[in-house]
Simulated scan of single mutants.
Amino acid sequence: MEQQRTRVAVAGASGLIGGALVRSLAADGYQVIRLVRRAPRGADEVRWEPEEGRVEAAGLAGCAAVVNLAGAGVGDRRWTEDYKKRIRDSRVPATAGLAKALASLDEPPRVFVNGSAMGVYGETGDRIVDESAPAASGFLPELCVEWEGAAAPAREAGVRTVFVRTGLVVARGGGAWGKLFPLFKAGLGGRMGDGRQYWSYIALHDEVAAIRHLLDRDDLSGPFNLTAPEPLTNREITAAMGRVLHRPTLFAVPAPVLRTVLGEMAGDVLGSARVVPKRLLESGFTFAFPGIEDAIRAA
């Protein structure tokens, strides 16, 4: 996309990934339009009500791209039935509302990048999976399928539509690693369960760079796994955290304790997801921090 005065709308601009993306785009001269839940305070904000699927479509006119990264944190709290409903309602109606708004424009944007998650593949064990793998069953996989499906109106209107199936983002400011860093720095870090489950991670810098790569490439659409090229086990990642932070990693959280504390969400922590970014690599994207130690240092 041409940088000068190019308008890019971002939903979820206050989140970990969205905030980093906005800073990156603004630094390179893009005009960023933020979707906000309150009354807009300027021309760079557009009102939307994600749970109701409503957005002021006129505010998106003239945007070359729209990026939707909004959604309640999957790992923020225990998965009660009420919170699972909140996770879904903050994603599916929001995506559907945005997609319909884009389809209604006389000149829709060239590209719609919509959030998703590697959770679509469910438990993979030692099996390596790429974008060709089918969706699994369960809350997260079924949510991802519905979430991606909600973007259909934009795709059917001819908008190039991309789904970013993000892994565990290595960053200090939020997500899984936002909770891990304080524990490890205090010397309380350790493996979870038996530690043999695979974690597919990605440095925040690479996450943002990959999204921008997908925005720029007019030939790319559909699902892309945003994970580092070589997933590692929780045991390997624990050891790397200890080495980089110079802290012991003697503690371990037994699986039964995790299940008691986290409930259904424990399956996501103890489950194995060996997900690789096949399509992203084939498109020519280069990771700046492909290794776990580099990703941790970058954070």
Rank of each mutant, 00 (worst) to 15 (best):
L35Q: 08
V162S: 12
R243L: 04
V55K: 03
I33V: 13
A266L: 05
D194C: 00
G18D: 02
W48F: 07
R172K: 15
L245V: 07
F289L: 13
P50E: 07
G122C: 11
V253I: 15
L21E: 04
I202Y: 10
H213D: 10
P256N: 09
L262V: 07
T233Y: 10
A157K: 01
T124A: 02
L245M: 10
A273I: 02
G119V: 10
I211H: 06
V111Q: 05
T227W: 00
R191P: 12
L281M: 11
D82I: 09
V55H: 03
A99Q: 01
D219Q: 13
G59F: 13
A27D: 15
A266T: 03
P254T: 08
A176R: 10
G73Q: 05
G193W: 00
I237H: 03
A117E: 06
W177G: 07
P108M: 12
Y198T: 09
R235F: 15
G284K: 05
A61Y: 08
P141G: 09
L60P: 06
A288E: 13
A43N: 15
T249P: 05
F112Y: 11
D76M: 13
C144S: 08
L232R: 12
A94M: 02
S200I: 10
Y201D: 03
V253N: 03
G175F: 02
V8L: 04
L143F: 07
G167P: 11
G115Y: 01
D89F: 07
T6A: 15
R47T: 09
F184N: 07
G167A: 03
V159W: 06
R243Y: 09
G119M: 01
P182Q: 06
L102Y: 04
R34H: 12
L258P: 01
A136K: 03
A133S: 04
L35C: 11
G97P: 05
G190H: 01
V253K: 03
A157H: 02
Q3C: 14
R88Y: 12
A27H: 07
G42T: 00
G73H: 10
G71M: 03
G59N: 13
T249A: 13
G29A: 13
I237W: 06
A252G: 14
S116R: 04
P109E: 10
R7Y: 00
G193Y: 00
V66N: 04
A70K: 00
A61V: 05
D44T: 12
Y30S: 09
F289I: 04
A39K: 14
